[in-house]
């Protein structure tokens, strides 16, 4: 399973997005606001999810903000740290 696919699955499970299917989350859909509709509380959960499921730490907002834009940017961030 690719990082992107795993990300979509854990987002749905850990954020309880029961009304969303993995296929409905496109790689370039905005995670916050009009896209997937996540909010600031979800951002805190996302930091925990990334560390828990991928072992990658998002240390501060400086590196978190660009990473937490879309599935693509987050997957790229994780893959770079795991490389």
């Amino acid at each position: 399973m690719s990082v992107k696919e795993k990300l979509k699955r854990v987002l749905i499970e850990d954020l309880n997005l029961e009304d969303v299917e993995p296929d409905e989350i496109t790689d370039d859909m905005a995670l916050f606001g009009d896209g997937l509709g996540l909010d600031s509380l979800d951002a805190v959960e996302l930091v925990v999810i990334v560390q828990k499921h991928f072992g990658v730490e998002i240390k501060d907002m400086e590196e978190g903000r660009p990473a937490l834009q879309t599935i693509s940017t987050l997957a790229k961030f994780i893959e770079e740290r795991l490389a």
Partner: peptide, 14 residues
């Protein structure tokens, strides 16, 4: 459980 399994930094704030 999340605290014991993954440490405090991975404990869900929710």
């Amino acid at each position: 459980d999340s605290y014991l399994d993954f440490g405090y930094s991975c404990s869900s704030p929710t």
